[in-house]
Each structure stands twice: as C-alpha cells, then as structure tokens.
Design a protein around this nucleic acid. Structure first.
Length: 197
DNA sequence: CATGGGATTGACT
DNA sequence: GTCAATCCCATGC
C-alpha cells in the first residue's frame, strides 16, 4: 500500500526554475489517525480524497506549507508527505529564498523545501503530472538509491507505523536520521579514523 | 462562535 | 535539551 512513498525516493520535484531529488518521504492513509483524512471528507481534506497525482499543500503550525502527493484513487484519502530534497537546479534561488548558503540545509525538511521551491497554499489541488506549476518527474535513468525504512516523525498518533522512507546515501535528510543511516554514518567515521591513524 | 491542536523550524539555555 | 511563533480548521457549545 505504501510503495508510492518508497518509489518517490529518487524522483525529481520541480517548481519554476528550482528543482530537487526526493530523498525522504512518509506515507499517510485514511485508516490511521495520524492522517488528516482520518477525520473524513472535510473542506480541509477534500484534496486528499481527490484523484492521485495531485498536490495536497497545507499549513503546519501556522507557519509552514507542507507538500504531499495524493497517492490513492479518488475516494480514498491518502498521500505521501515529501519531507526532504537534494537540491538540483536553481540553487542560488533557493539560497535567496531561505537566506542560507549550505546546500544540504536548503531542503532538509518538509517546511524548508516548500520555502526553497516557493510552494505555497495556493498550489493545493494542482496536478503534479506536468499540467500544473509543480511537476513530479521519474528518476533519471541509471540512478538507484538505497532506501531505508523507519518510523514517521513529528507526529503523536500511530507513531509505530514504519512508513518513513529515506535515501541512505543522502546528507539532505531531515533529522533525526533513521537508525540504519546513523549506523552507516558511524561505520564510515570509524573507517576514516582508522585510515588517519 | 470560541477554543485547541498540530505531518515544523530556528533561536536560545 | 526547551520553547515560542502563528493560522487554518475540526470540534463542541
């Protein structure tokens, strides 16, 4: 049921002149209480119950816009939250919007990437298939990411569900890193220290 | 109509 | 580590 979230890792999101590769995503479904669609069909969740391949953008904590891709057929409320990108094009534009220089900090969080790409609430409900301002593109041929799976973060309900997917090789993932990534990073550090000694 | 709670981030102790 | 910022909307009276 959550292969969409897995498969989005490595895909490219583009808005205007800025784009990035997805390195982190989480799946949400109407049957579990962490999903906004759990409350049923309301004005807020209408997009979630609409056709797949559309953007669900909502305001979080009154401050940030968060970008999701509707992932199930019309009538089923489900979406994949895009949590982090590796910047690809328009990096200087992203720097200007974010007021930061470090590339790995530009899109390493769901609120950060919408700011970097200039995505706002007015894009809620727009298609991601190329007819709308935001476009979702398949991974470039030949690219294959090592995807690690973990529990979703920042939520208080259904925290045990392992529906968070990250590219283990990316430094642009939002924190905290999944255990598998921390282990890999520690191993790398040990290897480097051994070489230095 | 009033209230409360976030799928977060950045600044500060 | 803690904490405030800030607003949409679901819920309850």
């Amino acid at each position: 049921m959550h292969e969409v979230a897995h498969d989005l890792i490595g895909c490219v999101v583009r808005h205007g002149d800025a784009s990035g590769t997805i390195v982190e995503a989480e799946s949400y479904h109407e049957e579990e209480p962490a999903c906004h669609a759990f409350a049923g069909l309301t004005p807020r969740t209408a997009t979630l119950f609409g056709p797949p391949g559309h953007a669900y953008v909502y305001r979080s904590y009154g401050i940030h816009a968060l970008l999701n891709a509707v992932s199930e057929p019309q009538g089923v409320g489900a979406a994949v939250l895009i949590r982090a990108l590796e910047p690809l094009e328009g990096i200087d534009l992203m720097r200007a919007r974010r007021g930061l220089d470090a590339v790995e900090a530009l899109c390493s969080g769901p609120g950060k990437l919408t700011e970097a790409l200039g995505i706002g609430l007015q894009l809620n409900g727009t298609p991601l298939t190329g007819e709308g301002p935001i476009e979702l593109l398949a991974p470039p041929a030949g690219r294959s990411a090592t995807v690690v799976r973990g529990t979703r973060i920042g939520i208080t309900k259904a925290v045990e569900l392992p529906w968070r997917f990250c590219d283990a090789g990316s430094r642009c993932v939002s924190r905290p890193w999944p255990d598998a990534m921390r282990a890999a990073a520690a191993q790398e550090r040990a290897r480097r220290d051994r070489r230095a000694a």
